[in-house]
Amino acid sequence: MTINFNDPLARILDDTSHNRRYDIWRWFQLTANKIPLPGEINHPGMRSTLKHVISITPGLSEIIKHRQAEQLLPENYFEWINEGNRQVEWLNSKLIPRITQSGFMPPMTGGLFGKDLLIASIDLWSINLKQKVSLLSELEISWNEHKKGDKQFKWFSDEEQKCILAGELINKYIPLDGLLSIKLSTYLPIENHENLLTFFDHANLDHNQIALFLEKVKARWRTQKYRKNLTGKGQYNFILSDKAIARLDRLSDTYELSRAKILDILLKMESEQNRYLPERIKLLKDES
């Protein structure tokens, strides 16, 4: 976020925008030039430290301003990176290999994480601004295309227990070994919908493999639900006369209830009111 600011560092660099992203970039510019800096990047006094070091080093402010104009894109180019950790993880997985293949090493520091680290890697990569614009445009298109695959996982979005079940079945139905297993262990356990999407973002499976696994999870879910619904119920086999079946079917059609539900209601009412069976049993005894 950029805010108007007029502290000593802003005046030194002729930059009244207090932008943490720019300060992160400036910190790395100084460390890359072997200028010792007390504390760690992102610490509360970082801006004060930058001001002190730049102000006591002749010519450094002009160098910083020149490089800033060469390397830093305006904020609006990054506005689409606003969908949380999953998006950042995916973008990093696409960006870092390209950066390292060019011979540039992304910043490695314990004080920078997530979106800050992603954007710092782009800012510090020594390619020209047109290339950075093209790169970000390509990544945005790829991300939007990738998200279309989320439709496969919509069934899981309404209940976290479905996602947890998927996580429990991964080792059974998706063979993971070697480096892939180590890599994917970072995204386990799966506890919610975003966890599930993030795991499969990096699982290197094709559409059909994912679809097959998800169907197995859905089948297990249906089985568990069915067994849960059977709690307190038993199955019995007995013979009914054709007339009794016809009566049962008529009642079932009339009230739009299952045969089992009609029988359950009749048995419950007779048990509570005891209105018909005693009389009917008496008649049967008299007839015999």
Rank of each mutant, 00 (worst) to 15 (best):
L139Y: 09
D7L: 07
L165F: 04
K132V: 04
T49D: 10
L13M: 06
I210M: 15
L165P: 02
I190L: 03
G59D: 05
R21G: 11
S17E: 15
E159K: 15
N42W: 04
I174R: 01
A203N: 02
F238H: 06
F28C: 11
K51Y: 12
S93I: 08
F78G: 06
N6S: 14
L169D: 06
T16M: 09
N19I: 10
R26V: 12
I24R: 15
L283H: 09
D15Y: 11
L136S: 05
D23G: 09
L214C: 03
H18A: 13
K151N: 11
T2Q: 14
I64M: 04
S134L: 14
D264H: 00
I119H: 01
D264P: 00
K216A: 11
A219S: 10
N92A: 09
S134R: 07
Y77S: 04
K147H: 08
H66E: 14
D253H: 13
I262G: 02
R259D: 02
L37I: 08
R11H: 04
W27C: 07
L136W: 09
I41E: 09
G45W: 04
N171V: 10
E70H: 12
A32I: 05
S252K: 05
I262Q: 02
S181E: 14
E159M: 13
L112G: 03
R250Q: 10
D116C: 03
A260P: 03
D116N: 11
V88P: 00
G114S: 10
K34W: 05
S252I: 01
E138N: 13
N144F: 11
R247F: 08
G232V: 00
N82Y: 04
H43L: 08
L72F: 02
L180C: 03
G234Y: 10
S181Q: 15
I41F: 11
S241I: 04
M1V: 12
E160G: 06
M46C: 02
H193W: 08
L230G: 02
G167P: 01
I210S: 00
Y236G: 07
S102A: 13
L50S: 01
L212M: 12
H146I: 12
C163A: 11
E215W: 02
P97R: 05
G232L: 01
P36H: 08
K218A: 08
L136Q: 05
F104M: 08
A211W: 10
I174T: 00
P175Q: 10
S288C: 11
D249M: 07
D7P: 03
L136D: 06
P278W: 10
L176S: 06
A260N: 15
W125Q: 00
G114H: 09
G149Y: 05
S48L: 09
S17D: 15
R222Y: 13
D206F: 03
S134G: 01
Y226R: 14
K172R: 14
